[in-house]
């Protein structure tokens, strides 16, 4: 039994940042990179299934990214995943979720997992594209924003809940193998232990090129292109300045006035 979990290294911006010279992205000097928050939950969900299933279950972590994204893989391996796969080619530098999904589809064909988990969205762009695009390419059953999952390895269906608007959840069964995008809060992600972090360094990571997957660079096209990136107009917020005491005094005035106190 094998579960494939796709993970992404996402970027948060420093308090101050500048755009790249071509105006199509933020200068990467201002990035703080980390494993996507949502992926902590999908990795955890896979590990829980593996632990319940016993030894012959395998959790494989996949990322599409340059060598800087190894950290994301190692973070997942340190939690207890078995091995990693990283695919990279310079032609992927501007890849959107659709292009990434095309690469991941080849990995799925190669690995033949019983389940694929992705995060519900990436915390940097919130596209929520990659997982369900992957399912579309594979022609696999799929469900997004899964907040509860009952699945026993080998079973040909899983029962899940999709988290909808306003806290409503839908209970659904889905045929397996399936691609599921995992929502925050589905479980309590573990932290890696020191031992886990040490072990992760020894775990096998396959580094693959597009060629290795039988893909040509011009076969991995995106469905969108960034024309420009820019700062949103500053809001109308009136800034309350001064010391914390002064700020709080002004805030208290505002509260009392608006509340008629």
């Amino acid at each position: 039994m094998k579960i494939l979990v796709t993970v992404k290294q996402v970027a948060a911006l420093d308090d101050e940042f500048e755009l790249r010279d071509d105006g199509r992205d933020v200068d990467e000097d201002f990035f703080e990179e980390d494993l996507n928050e949502f992926d902590h939950y999908s990795v955890e969900e896979a590990l829980l299934i593996k632990e319940a299933a016993g030894d012959d279950a395998e959790v494989v972590i996949v990322t599409v990214g340059n060598e800087d994204t190894d950290d994301a893989l190692r973070t997942a391996l340190a939690k207890g995943a078995d091995r990693g796969i990283r695919i990279w080619d310079e032609s992927l530098a501007d890849a959107d979720g659709i292009a990434v999904a095309k690469v991941l589809a080849k990995v799925v064909e190669r690995e033949k997992p019983d389940m694929v988990f992705t995060g519900a969205q990436s915390a940097d762009f919130g596209s929520a594209v990659t997982g369900m695009a992957l399912a579309g390419l594979l022609g696999w059953p799929h469900a997004a924003v899964v907040c509860n999952l009952e699945y026993s390895p080998g079973s040909d269906t899983a029962t899940l809940r999709r988290e909808l608007e306003g806290g409503l959840e839908e209970i659904m069964t889905v045929r397996c193998p399936a691609v599921l995008s995992i929502q925050l809060g589905i479980n309590e992600p573990r932290y890696a232990s020191l031992r886990g972090i040490k072990q992760a360094k020894q775990k096998p990571v396959d580094e693959l090129t597009l060629d290795d997957l039988g893909l040509a660079a011009d076969g991995v096209t995106s469905a969108s292109r960034v024309r420009r990136m820019y700062a949103p107009e500053k809001g109308q917020a009136e800034l309350i300045t001064g010391s914390a005491a002064e700020q709080a005094t002004r805030l208290a005035e505002i509260i009392k006035e608006l509340r008629g106190m």
Binding site: A11, A12, L13, D124, R225, V226, R227, M229, Y230, P232
Partner: peptide, 15 residues
Amino acid sequence: RAGYAEKVLVDIDFP
């Protein structure tokens, strides 16, 4: 659309 936790806006086209 927005990007980087809503800190930037992105104009996207579809060649």
